[in-house]
Design a protein around this nucleic acid. Sequence first.
DNA 1: ATTATTTTTAACTTTTTAGTTAAACTTATT
DNA 2: AATAAGTTTAACTAAAAAGTTAAAAATAAT
Lengths: 203, 203
Amino acid sequence: MTENDKQTEEKIFEAATDVFVEKGMDGARMQDIANHAGINKALLHYYYRTKDHLFNAVFEKIAGQLFKKFAPVLDENLSLEEKIRFFFREHIGFLQRNPRLPSFLLNELNRNPERIKKLIQSIDINKLWATLEKQHKEELVKYNITRETIPQLMTSIAALSVFPFAAKAIISGIMEKLGYDFDEYIEVRKKYAADFVIKAITK
Amino acid sequence: MTENDKQTEEKIFEAATDVFVEKGMDGARMQDIANHAGINKALLHYYYRTKDHLFNAVFEKIAGQLFKKFAPVLDENLSLEEKIRFFFREHIGFLQRNPRLPSFLLNELNRNPERIKKLIQSIDINKLWATLEKQHKEELVKYNITRETIPQLMTSIAALSVFPFAAKAIISGIMEKLGYDFDEYIEVRKKYAADFVIKAITK
DNA sequence: ATTATTTTTAACTTTTTAGTTAAACTTATT
DNA sequence: AATAAGTTTAACTAAAAAGTTAAAAATAAT
């Protein structure tokens, strides 16, 4: 009963996640989601009244997942370099398991900027900088990191991790042509990106 | 007559570009395009039989524009460092004028990977490497650039330039919250990204 | 002026898709 | 066994959007 409820509700949710992530809100079809879940449209609407409801549920879960990956890195008890390496290993690892999330999220956010305010509430850059300053006071002098350049640095780190997946279609196409494998390229990238950033910020 | 034809055909094409780039193929409406062009739907179909025809025309032009920006940089008579600075200035400059292209292109390519083969034909990485090796034989010893790491380096450069625009909605949201301006952030980025890369690849 | 071309008007068809409904059926609960 | 909840079936409505049509009006070409 309640067990069963959750089973099918989850089946629906997972199917919806797959379809929305692949096709986007506009491209997704309720019938397609029902098929993926192995049920019929009537039951789909029985659980989620409208496409919007379903989409919002999916979107918020996904957005939460991706952003939560960023935050706790700074709290680890590691040196700055180790944190950077840790971040790329974990974050790229997460994206390996969810390669289509970046493209999906970036696109839906660009189309619907209202969604962003909610997400941004959870990010407090001032606090982030405070943590960084406290934990790495002595270390920071070795690096070209100032309060002014933090946005540039943060977005650069995000870019190096996220972009290969956001542009996966093109990059894997080029890789294939060169006889390389996208998955290998990504595996190598965990270290390359970390080295790249550390080198770039070291005085 | 023929003059007029081109006028309205261009009007349509520009309107279609605007709408497709903003809404994507699935989200765009033919009626909306007609309105933007200041004409009616009948005339729109008179010039472009179907939505698909119109979209393909728009997509190919845009994709061509963006990729052409990458290639000719290497042919300039400049040092490697100067080329890197030149690239970020030019490429980010282009994206400043066309901020929505990255999100649009990445998304449509991910949804429709067949399109990619056409685009990739125009890129010849082997030739690119040959040019690089020839023009910078002596210089290259100063840098951590090998044939093996070229894909990593190239995608990193692309990432640093393109990602801020692909993620503009989020980044400008965060900037706003911090009292910074996205446009200033981008202006600064032309130099920051160049310095970042040069520092990262210098031995 | 006349003819040809472009453009508008406005109603129309067709297709696709979201969402509804009611009845029958199945499975779990008591 | 009886009741309730979950699920299917299949036909349906309503709305949105693509695409069509034919006739009238405006504009350009000869």
